[in-house]
């Protein structure tokens, strides 16, 4: 026979199990193809930065024009790919955000994967670098700054996408 304590615990547990009747998903699914594409484009980005590490002259910009547009296009496509994944359990996120709102905590969870912002940031960096290269050419210091920007944002995107592989 069950003790009263065990009965209460059992009822509570049954209720909880029925309430959470399936596996809860708060973040998007892992996309192996997206992660693979991100690592590939990261290599291409580093190769490109290596080719301009000593700075650029605006007179030779046409040689780089195609590289810029190819990289920006790939990054924009990956941002779109990252953002089109459904988040199955929006209700759970809403409940968590409702609780956080009630506690006046300014850390609400968003439905959009953070990697989308990171990839959009890389696209902005490359576009600004391209404009500067075309108009004036780039000093080595400016190249180092643009490269570190891309490194920071790519690390954010890669870490998040890899973390989704749970």
């Amino acid at each position: 026979m069950y003790s009263n304590h065990s009965k209460v615990a059992l009822v509570l547990l049954l209720f909880l199990a029925l309430l959470v009747s399936s596996c809860t998903q708060l973040a998007p699914r892992y996309d192996a193809e997206l992660y693979s594409d991100l690592t590939e484009v990261n290599v291409e980005l580093m190769q490109f930065f290596s080719s301009v590490t000593h700075g650029t002259n605006k007179n030779t910009y046409p040689e780089r024009n195609g590289h810029y547009h190819a990289l920006i296009g790939r990054i924009d496509a990956l941002a779109m790919q990252s953002n089109t994944r459904p988040i199955p359990n929006r209700d759970a996120l809403k409940k968590i955000n409702h609780y956080l709102n009630a506690t006046e905590t300014n850390i609400l969870f968003e439905e959009q994967p953070p990697s989308v912002n990171c990839l959009q940031r890389i696209s902005i960096s490359l576009n600004r670098m391209r404009e500067e290269d075309e108009d004036k050419g780039l000093h080595t210091g400016a190249v180092a700054l643009f490269k570190n920007e891309v490194l920071i944002s790519m690390d954010q995107a890669l870490t998040y996408e890899s973390f989704l592989n749970r």
């Binding site: 809860t24 998903q25 708060l26 973040a27 996120l93 968590i96 850390i107 969870f109 968003e110 994967p113 953070p114 990697s115 912002n117 990171c118 940031r121 920071i152 944002s153 954010q156 870490t159 998040y160 973390f163 989704l164 749970r166």
Partner: peptide, 15 residues
């Protein structure tokens, strides 16, 4: 974006 990524990682851990 760093803060938002941390929040995203936290959501995965909570899940």
């Amino acid at each position: 974006n760093f803060a938002k990524t941390l929040r995203g990682l936290l959501a995965v851990t909570i899940e």
